[in-house]
């Protein structure tokens, strides 16, 4: 599990940045273009999958900020409920789009009210939890390998 050649490693650590950027773009423009929180979150998670594939098992075991990702996972879900509850407080109804009156003009970057914020929360949640799912799959190995570590 030493990972791939240096070419792959170098390229994938460059490409990682682009993939993360693309994921953020998909999340932030979710209310305007195809995509959204879920799709963007999957793209964010896939950037780390690329690193896992390129750098191999050692990297996965050592260099990942697992407790941070786990906290982000909870934070995403919590933000989503918070937005719904803010709708209850300001709009009178659970999940009410209370920003729509102010920021609801179509074809603007800031439009659709609370939807972009919900997208960010979902992106965080999906990205972090999918990353954890893939991590959990990758720590499985043969019984013999476990002893050698």
């Amino acid at each position: 599990m030493k990972g791939m050649t240096i070419i792959v490693k170098t390229i994938s650590s460059w490409v990682k940045v682009l993939i993360i950027l693309f994921g953020i773009y998909i999340i932030l423009f979710g209310h305007l273009t195809p995509g959204g929180g879920f799709a963007g979150g999957v793209i964010l998670a896939s950037s780390y999958v690329l690193l896992m594939l390129a750098f191999g098992g050692e990297f996965v075991k050592k260099d990942l900020p697992l407790s941070l990702v786990s906290k982000l996972d909870c934070l995403g879900a919590f933000m989503f409920i918070l937005i719904a509850l803010l709708g209850l407080v300001f709009g009178g109804v659970f999940f009410a789009n209370f920003l729509f009156e102010k920021y609801g003009q179509p074809l603007h970057l800031l439009s659709a009210g609370t939807i972009p914020f919900s997208n960010i929360a979902i992106g965080l949640k999906v990205g972090a939890s999918l990353f954890l799912v893939i991590y959990s799959l990758s720590i499985c190995c043969k019984a013999g390998e476990l002893d050698s570590h």
Binding site: K71, C74, F78, I81, L82, A84, L85, L88, F94, F95
Partner: peptide, 20 residues
Amino acid sequence: IPLPVFIAIPLATAFLLPMF
């Protein structure tokens, strides 16, 4: 009583707790 609080209270608390 707004009905969604029955879902929102446990759900929000559930995601708050691991951050402790």
